[in-house]
């Protein structure tokens, strides 16, 4: 079994708005897979419907060979999820949030060791909402790593970070993939996807319009890099 995520015919709409329009997708174990697209292209809906934390209208999903809804408890001991919105109780301190996160898993990793790995030592007593943007993102990675996951879902992890903080997060993620952790991430930064992802897919209005490695997409579109390929794929007009 070498499929980490298998999605078949996934559909989701909010009233008249179709967010995910019949997506088929397969992510291999251990690869870093990028879901790219504009804001509103359906990236978050695709991830959340796949995880079963948002109801889907149609389609089937298998993660690590399990059904995320009926086998939720077994699955999420192996899968870490980072959320676009923080999802923390108000006024909670970093250390307390780590303990809260640990209480959710049957065999959590030692959060103090993760604090050292992620450079959050000395922040335990600080309120989570008072951390800097980069620290918040490192904390949300820490929380997603608590189950010692085989597979990690990251939703626009670096949005809103300055260039230095983004690169810090990148090397962190590269360290994880070096250890064999599979990653599914969504992003609208092409430099990020080009550096981190083995394969990417481009979503437009809830449909897959391209799929392949960043190099393949560039070659197929006769351009030099993923950013230009992306612009060609989604049909953006050249800005002079």
């Amino acid at each position: 079994m070498d499929t980490a995520l298998r999605v078949r015919g996934l559909r989701k709409s909010y009233g008249a708005l179709v967010a995910v329009d019949g997506v088929d997708l397969e992510v291999r174990r251990g690869e870093t897979f990028g879901i790219l697209g504009h804001n509103g292209a359906g990236k978050t809906s695709l991830i959340e419907c796949s995880l079963g934390i948002r109801a889907r209208d149609a389609g089937e999903v298998e993660i690590l060979g399990m059904n995320p809804v009926t086998e939720r408890k077994a699955l999420f001991d192996l899968v870490g999820v980072q959320f676009q919105e923080s999802g923390w109780p108000d006024a909670i301190r970093v250390g307390e949030l780590c303990e809260l996160g640990s209480a959710l898993y049957s065999r959590p990793r030692d959060w103090r060791a993760l604090c050292r790995e992620l450079g959050l030592v000395g922040k335990e007593k600080i309120k989570a909402k008072e951390l800097s943007g980069g620290e918040k993102q490192r904390l949300s990675i820490l929380l997603a790593l608590l189950p010692d996951p085989e597979l990690l879902f990251l939703d626009e992890l670096t949005t809103g970070l300055d260039p230095v903080a983004r690169r810090e997060v990148w090397s962190l993620l590269e360290g994880l993939t070096g250890k064999g952790v599979g990653i599914v991430l969504s992003s609208h930064y092409m430099d990020e996807a080009e550096r981190l992802c083995d394969r990417v897919t481009v979503l437009k209005a809830g449909r897959i319009v391209a799929l392949g490695s960043p190099a393949e997409l560039a070659e197929r579109n006769g351009v030099l890099n993923l950013e230009e390929a992306y612009l060609a794929i989604i049909g953006a007009k050249e800005v002079a």
Binding site: I53, R72, V81, F83, S86, G87, W88, D90, A103, L104
Partner: peptide, 18 residues
């Protein structure tokens, strides 16, 4: 309700917690 509003419950849902 505040936990639902802040998506703390969604975080719980993406974990083995009851």
């Amino acid at each position: 309700s505040d936990y639902r509003h802040r998506r703390v419950l969604t975080r719980f849902r993406a974990s083995p917690a009851d």
